[in-house]
Nucleic acid binder design. Structure first.
Lengths: 230, 230
DNA sequence: CCAAAAGTGTTAAAGGTACACCCATGC
DNA sequence: GCATGGGTGTACCTTTAACACTTTTGG
């Protein structure tokens, strides 16, 4: 072949899977089921196969553990330190996924010994996975300000308070409820449903859904989602 | 070996090299010197070797063509389409570099048939290199707002007008000189030299240099470089 | 009626935008 | 002295930030 004098490498994907559980940002981790470091906590991972792209591989890994398809999944970056895997040279492409925490297949999860961990109570992870998690978190914080990706972590319908709780979890600080509400409503991207969530107050809080179609139309016209000033 | 049943892949790096030439943003391209598509314009690239990281490989490629080390170089993302290289399956990691256009080794450049092209007058590129360039440009536009990377494209000493010209080239729009000046000066990151550049006006314009040490100290204290509002 | 969360109003401070104007100097 | 790009002043407007206030309703 043309490049036959060049070196070849093992390629893996590792997925950071975010979920949001009412007031805490969480990660889905699993107990590694092969050597080396079998039994330690790890990101979901898998090796790239010759007939698939990296995105394909990442979706395959995600579906294997959670049973989910059609979720938000994005490439993060490449990790290529010479000794990141002690067993052999493996270059890993980090991915991060945002999923609705109520939505996964619980049997599959149990089968793989997978478990949700609060983002500030993570166990020790294998290899350089802590670094991959750190980078994912920074990416999430950056992206959530300028793209409507937060909704991926919530159920289809949600209250403004839930949405604010999510942003408070991501940015780890209090956000003024009145100002947050006005800011998000002023974009005109939320559909109010004729339903109230009565769980948290006597008055009840209206449920909303994100209007993705409208977002795409507005974006095509030059609109930018922007929560940078909250 | 542990993973011996897994597939292996060729890995390449491709570098988008930005330069700034007084009023135009430019890219350094070269005529590809091996098959397939020998003779076509291409990004600087090379294959990963077993004893180096991807960053190492990208620096090696950059040094081979420009003679430069210690320049800004950052990973962009991975391109893994099955047929991106018609000759064989090659996964490419895109990088982008910001260099001072006056600083490269001209002999090396000529030797490789390399040439600077204005960003809006690029030739047809091989493979998916146009996509890699597009992604680099979006990254540069995003990053230049929140990190002081613009200075990498300028000489050590520069006038405020030159700096503004650079940002105007990156964002392809006019920036109000008075407001830009105030904004950049208010960060307190520029050292004014007791020298005036007399090339463009009778009055002369003071030269400044970027105070990297101060930037790092301020950043450690929570400061953020921010030109988002200009 | 009251507690508590949902939701609205209001105002001061900060930041962005536009443009008028002064400054220095070689010709 | 005047043309020219460098550099400053300033007034208007929008956005942010903080907090007081009103609304709703099960108990």
């Amino acid at each position: 072949m043309t490049y036959s004098n060049k070196d070849k490498f093992y390629l893996a994907v590792d997925c950071v899977i975010f979920g949001f559980d009412n007031d805490k940002l969480k990660l889905l981790l699993y107990k590694r089921d092969f050597e080396p470091q079998k039994g330690m906590w790890s990101l979901m991972g898998g090796f790239l196969r010759i007939n698939e792209t990296l995105d394909d591989a990442a979706y395959r890994v995600l579906a294997r553990i959670t049973g989910l398809r059609n979720v938000f999944l994005e490439q993060l970056s490449v990790f290529s330190n010479l000794d990141r895997d002690p067993a052999d040279r493996v270059i890993s492409i980090g991915y991060y996924a945002l999923i609705n925490i109520l939505d996964y297949d619980d049997r599959q999860l149990k089968q793989y010994g997978a478990q949700w961990f609060a983002i500030d109570e993570l166990p020790v992870l294998i290899f350089d996975h802590a670094e991959i998690v750190g980078k994912s978190l920074r990416r999430l914080k950056r992206k959530a300000k300028t793209q409507p990706i937060g909704f991926e972590l919530l159920p289809e319908n949600f209250t403004i308070t839930q949405l604010r709780n999510l942003y408070e979890a991501i940015y780890q600080r209090r956000i003024e409820p009145a100002n947050f509400r006005r800011k998000i409503m002023s974009m005109g991207l939320l559909n109010r449903l004729p339903i109230k969530d009565m769980n948290n107050s006597r008055k009840g809080a209206f449920l909303y859904s994100f209007n993705k179609e409208k977002y795409e139309i507005l974006t095509a016209k030059g609109f930018s989602f922007d929560l940078s000033g909250i």
